[in-house]
Amino acid sequence: MWDEAMLRMMLNGIGETLYMVAVSTFFAYVIGLPLGIMLVVFAPGGARPHPRAYKILDVAVNLARSIPFIILLIAILPFTRAVVGTTIGSTAAIVPLALSAAPFIARLVESSLKEVDPGVVEAAQSMGATTFQIIRKVLLPEAKPSLLVGGAIAATTILGYSAMAGFCGGGGLGDIAIRFGYYRYQYDVMLVTLVLNVVVVQILQGIFMKASRKSDKRK
């Protein structure tokens, strides 16, 4: 069974998985990063406290996070079609992946930015920094090592979710594992995809952690 076709399928699976993870993570951050920043800046005691905006965001993020991914995937099919023009394949899986990871990433970003010493923010304010300057020049650069660790968590979580997209023909390694392992009882194929998944996770984790360590000047 390990013919050329199977090999090509595996390689294809790796490619699709990486594509889904990379693009979904990117768009999840496009949505989640600003949300996370706002959660910190608007929070009581933040750089620009805004209790009402904070409360609304806080509740909205929790609501979004409590929707199970598999339900979201199906519920937003019309939206997915409107955005990418299809509901099948890797590209279609990106839409629900990014949407469901965004609130999770907002929380990751929030916790990273909260590690920044409020005293440093106060120092920047005492120098006449605007809120935007504080975000760009204090919060984000100071939290960079922690944000990168969060990036590793986000990417690996999205990788895990991408396997569920296999149920809707999402493609990728997870799709192969489900089709062969679950539907056809070909456990050897499933095992191989599993190992490949582990390798991909290790590499992703390694890249992010190395970047995090390198950017950390605190020790």
Partner: peptide, 27 residues
């Protein structure tokens, strides 16, 4: 009005020079 603090409140991810440049960048 410059201000200094008990816990120094320096930017940990910037060098000494980068820290001194910080208020100038802001300005």
């Amino acid at each position: 009005m410059g201000m200094i603090f008990q816990q120094f409140n320096l930017l940990m991810q910037r060098t000494a020079e980068g820290n001194v440049c910080f208020p100038l960048e802001i300005a």
